[in-house]
Design a binder for these strands. Structure first.
Lengths: 190, 190
DNA sequence: ACCCTAGCGGACCGCCCGGTCCGCTTGCCC
DNA sequence: GGGCAAGCGGACCGGGCGGTCCGCTAGGGT
């Protein structure tokens, strides 16, 4: 026996990787940079994540859990389906207005990797988007069974995420879009 | 003197590059693959486009011209600002429903390259999105000077492009979103 | 206190990237 | 028709990628 392994190594690696992947894109960030930022060796990285794809999948899984928690928190006071839809859009609107927000991690990943449809990270992203979509469909279906409201709300959410990914580099006023989306969904559910 | 240069070389290269960049993403496509697909040599490629960034900028410039033509065509029958907004959204809705449509080339590029804000392709993409935005602002401003309508229409357009980029890999029914967007913008401008 | 092993940083490998350049080929000029 | 220079395909280069492995080091067991 010898040294006991550092217990937080995995978290340090995953934290550094998540920040870099989100900020610069997955392909733009090499493994060398990740271990440098995490202050560890490559051996440790590949011990926890055998391939880059595993690390990317773990990054997206963390992002999914964070999003799920935020969504649950935003919905604690929602009593009606209409409240639920407004709260969901308002939560996204608040997120996109935060400084440093660079769009939805899952949509960004799928845009960066249109191929390899069977890779682990792609599955995580697809599953998350499918589940989000199902949640909106369920709430909207109670207000408007035709499904038209669900499509509309989904368009607003996607529009917000899309603008967050690039509008900072245009006029930088994503908060305006967020406010407009909230007002519109409030009008739509009544 | 010797051989006369092939006149369509530049177009063949640019055509192959545009298709590959759009289909697989810019970073995923190497120069070797482009010359292979174009059936030419590297010398010719670098003669017309000294760096990869120049080729990417040219690809986006072509995409911009195509989009501008399509938008002009869609607007020939629009008599009022309200008509204009509906026609613009309908045009995008038709585009996203086409098979093989993989989202907006400019938004995809910016998602893939969040850094190097001063690179030539980034400028092309940013300028195009700024001009589109200005066009929508102008038309919407005549109906609703507060700017709220412009934000709403912009959200719908962005939502459509965003869904087109990934929804084919979910339920594949982007046409539904397109139809919903058109109906919503019709309701909004009245 | 000393050994011995597990922990670990970082050198290293093959591959493919963007970009350069060599030398075969082709067809115009006389 | 032959020579020769421009056209052109593809071999080549340095560098950085993802992934492997070597050898120093630290610290628990006796």
């Amino acid at each position: 026996m010898a040294r006991t392994p550092a217990p937080d190594t995995r978290d340090r690696i995953l934290g550094a990787a998540a920040r870099l992947f989100y900020e610069h894109g997955v392909r733009a960030v090499g493994m060398n940079r990740i271990i440098q930022e995490a202050g560890t060796g490559k051996n440790l990285l590949y011990q926890h994540f055998p391939e880059k794809a595993d690390l990317v999948a773990a990054y997206l899984a963390v992002a999914r859990d964070v999003r799920d928690s935020a969504a649950r928190l935003a919905l604690v006071d929602a009593r009606t389906p209409a409240d639920t839809l407004v709260a969901l859009v308002a939560e996204v609107a608040a997120k996109v207005a935060e400084p440093g927000f660079r769009g939805c991690a899952f949509r960004n990943y799928l845009a960066e990797f249109p191929d390899d449809a069977d890779a682990a990270p792609t599955r995580v992203a697809r599953d998350y988007l499918g589940a989000s979509r199902a949640a909106i469909d369920a709430a909207a279906g109670e207000v408007d069974p035709s499904g038209e409201l669900a499509e509309r709300v989904w368009l607003l959410v996607d529009g917000l995420y899309s603008q967050a990914a690039y509008r900072n580099r245009l006029d930088g006023d994503v908060a305006r879009a967020g406010a407009a989306a909230v007002r519109l969904v409030e009008a739509l559910v009544r």
